[in-house]
């Protein structure tokens, strides 16, 4: 029996963008896309793709669908999960969807899943590196009325259930969850694989399946925000570092300790 897995993946600005290139247009409250740094699939979402692929590696018959909601998709970025080995890419692509809040995103994802489903597992990232809300995957479980386990670092199929490891502050819990369930995946799962040449070739031939809002029976009225962005800005830092310089590095180390004592810090 094929296990159908949907992985929720968001296109985000590359979080490795050097701070000097991270700029905001304060008149529109938006991030100015840095020159020459293309967007990427959110890192934790690639961890989720990896989690699904590891199930396949372990011998399960899985079909992996990557689902994304947004606008201005950059296909080189969005096809990476396909190149890694995912089977399908489903995009809900509509102008304006790049700027909706998490409550609205959940509505669109739920509608898309209902149209494209049914699924056995829904995997999302623990949080998206643009707005850092860590909300969408958890909210989707609520809306779909499905069991939810967050911060999963290990995942195994076990008949009609899944065996999981869930990260907690000082270690992990082992958990058994039924299928279907919604899981959020965290980077402790391990690095996600690099696409190989064959994967890249296959992905280049695949076309995404695209829905508009209207295809899902939604209109922009359904997406009224609960949070309104009033101001987006880069905080000013007025910190001035005091560099400790000795005759050599060993001397600097000694002087640092003495300086901290002088300040009564140690």
């Amino acid at each position: 029996m094929t296990v159908r897995i949907v992985v929720l993946a968001k296109q985000v600005p590359d979080p490795e963008t050097p701070p000097s290139q991270f700029k905001i247009d304060e008149s529109t409250n938006t991030v100015i896309p840095p020159n020459g740094v293309p967007p990427v699939v959110n890192g934790f979402d690639l961890n989720a793709v990896e989690a699904a692929l590891l199930l396949r590696d372990a011998g399960a018959d899985v079909e992996i669908t990557v689902l994304s909601v947004g606008s201005d998709f950059v296909m080189d970025a969005m096809k990476k999960p396909l190149a890694m080995g995912a089977d399908r890419l489903v995009l809900v692509d509509d102008s304006g969807l790049g700027n909706i809040d998490s409550a609205a995103t959940v509505k669109v994802l739920a509608a898309a899943i209902e149209k494209d489903g049914p699924y056995d597992l829904i995997l999302g990232g623990r949080q998206a590196s643009d707005w850092d809300q860590a909300h969408v995957t958890l909210g989707l479980a609520e809306v779909l009325g499905l069991p939810l386990v967050s911060l999963v670092q290990k995942l195994e199929l076990d008949g009609d259930s899944v065996s999981l490891q869930r990260v907690i502050p000082d270690g992990y819990q082992t958990i058994t969850a039924p299928v279907p369930s919604v899981l959020t995946i965290t980077n402790e799962l391990g690095e996600s694989r690099y696409p190989n040449l064959r994967g890249i070739m296959q992905a280049s031939r695949k076309k995404p399946e695209v829905f508009s809002l209207a295809d899902l029976g939604l209109s922009s009225d359904d997406l009224a925000p609960k949070l309104e962005l009033r101001k987006l800005y880069i905080p000013e830092s007025n910190k001035q570092v005091e560099l400790i310089e000795g005759e050599d590095e060993a001397d600097s180390g000694k002087k640092l300790a003495l300086r901290l004592r002088e300040e009564k810090l140690i």
Partner: peptide
Amino acid sequence: FKEARFGIVGDWEKVLPSFLATVREL
């Protein structure tokens, strides 16, 4: 260094032993 109050520009391997030794003395 934009976030720190004190800093040493250097190789930790050379800095840490004397820092640790001085902390222990203090």
